[in-house]
Computed example of a mutant assay.
Amino acid sequence: MTVYSRVLGTGSYLPAERLTNHDLVERLAKIGLETSDEWIKTRSGISARHFAAANELTSDLAVKAAQAALKSAGIESSDLDLIILATSTPDHLGGFPSTACVVQDKLGAHNHCAAFDVQAVCAGFTYALAIADAFIRVGTYKKVMVLGAETFSRILNFQDRTTSVLFGDGAGAVILEASAEPGILSAALHADGSQRDILCVPGRATNGGVEGAAFLTMDGPAVFKLAVKVLEQVAHEALEKANLKSEQIDWLVPHQANIRIMEGTARKMGMSMDKVIVTVHEHGNTSAASIPLALDAGIRSGQIKRGQHLLLEGVGGGFAWGAVTIKY
């Protein structure tokens, strides 16, 4: 019998502090940085974002999303065989110990299920989902929680308006289970390390301190150009692997980085924006959390229904990108 990995449940969490563009403009003005709601919206489509509280860690956000997903799936944390967490903002320096292990403990999943982090920045959730699918298909695990969680507000340089207005914090979760029914149909993953400098945090831990900048830096035009190109390519690759045409996709669930990138990708795919799940206006760019946040929002709103075909795709620093097709 062929084994598939099927979506059993989803969940998400956004920190309580919601900053509109106007809120952020006022905050930045206090440190002498000028920007505007119109400037932000025009370039990104973002109207608001959420920032974690000072005492909230990435693992705390992930746990809230995980608990919602467990409730949605109707299972307990002790039923999980594996936890995979995609993040670029782990609880501990160097990601050691993994934030997935911290989440396992905070969830009370004390059945010694496996847990590890995945680092592929904004493409991290597609990478993590593909890894989970592979484990289930070969029979290693039966129930896997895949998380994307970020506290990007901690690595933003608020003297740089080109990046500080774009990102937010949040977490999303998907629980996969082994099934005889098709769920995840295909995955396509790629990377190009030669492009690593156009989106990165260049600082390095050295002798108890940081060498270089510990803030996110980005070459916006270069990222935009590369993102639209590779997202179209990887989307077609994933569709071909699943024997699907773009017109058979009910919903495109893209990484929520920039509305113009999303519109450009949809246009190249020949898809209407009416078939794209959009949350960037409310969440900003939440990196590895953005796809599961958007997926959960689409499911909870009733837009995404059982039996529909979904295309998930993301691109981010590394440079890394990926796409996954799902029959939900």
Rank of each mutant, 00 (worst) to 15 (best):
44 S>W: 05
54 A>R: 06
250 D>L: 06
57 L>Y: 13
135 F>W: 12
181 E>P: 00
313 E>T: 07
179 S>T: 06
158 F>W: 11
69 A>C: 10
58 T>Q: 10
136 I>D: 05
204 R>G: 00
108 G>R: 10
277 I>C: 05
216 L>G: 01
257 A>T: 08
168 G>V: 02
109 A>S: 12
83 I>V: 13
46 I>P: 01
84 I>Y: 12
43 R>W: 08
75 I>F: 02
263 E>N: 14
230 V>G: 00
261 I>F: 12
284 G>W: 04
169 D>R: 13
215 F>K: 08
79 D>N: 13
293 L>S: 02
3 V>I: 15
262 M>F: 04
113 C>G: 04
190 H>C: 10
91 D>P: 03
91 D>E: 07
292 P>W: 11
228 V>G: 01
68 A>V: 00
65 A>N: 05
47 S>P: 00
126 T>V: 12
134 A>R: 10
87 T>P: 04
17 E>I: 13
232 E>Q: 13
33 L>E: 10
198 I>S: 03
233 Q>A: 15
53 A>L: 14
23 D>W: 14
134 A>L: 08
13 Y>M: 01
289 A>C: 10
224 F>A: 00
270 G>M: 10
320 A>S: 15
262 M>L: 09
68 A>I: 00
253 V>R: 03
107 L>T: 02
303 Q>S: 12
